[in-house]
């Protein structure tokens, strides 16, 4: 199955590749993976006053996994945490026109958003005790 134009665009020009300071209290980090294909995805969000102000990712995997995570970083930027939690993998499938065999890539991106937000929230909860990262 050929990749859609949108997947190819994200693959050739991935948005927001990179890393944020993992030890910073306002950064949430997720590393998630899909055993089906061995893909590994890291997604980070920077939160200020309840809004996601920046997002970075790096994915080792197929074109669909890279495109899904690239799109996820674009979508979460500017959203509140609650809004970002509303992003569903099927939204990504629709936007990128992923074929059924690549749906797990979009699931991975949704997992990454949720897990990054959970990491940020747990850091906020643990902040008073946690001085070094």
């Amino acid at each position: 199955m050929a990749y859609s134009d949108k997947v190819i665009d994200h693959y050739n020009n991935p948005r927001n590749v990179g890393a944020l300071d993992k030890s910073s209290a306002d950064v949430g980090t997720a590393v998630v993976g899909a055993p089906e294909c061995g893909d590994v995805m890291k997604l980070q969000i920077k939160v200020e006053e309840g809004k996601i102000v920046d997002a970075k990712f790096k994915t080792f995997g197929c074109g669909s996994a890279i495109a899904s995570s690239s799109l996820a970083t674009e979508w979460v930027k500017g959203k509140s945490l609650d809004e970002a939690l509303q992003i569903k993998n099927m939204d990504i499938v629709e936007e990128l026109a992923l074929p059924p065999v690549k749906i797990h890539c979009s699931v991975l991106a949704e997992d990454a958003i949720k897990s990054a937000i959970a990491d940020y929230k747990s850091k906020q909860g643990a902040q008073p005790q946690e001085k070094t990262g």
Partner: peptide
């Protein structure tokens, strides 16, 4: 859990890839 992995394994895999 079909996705079960030891704690920290994915992080190690990511670092290894980098």
């Amino acid at each position: 859990d079909p996705k079960a992995l030891p704690e920290g394994f994915l992080r190690d895999m990511f670092n290894l890839q980098e």
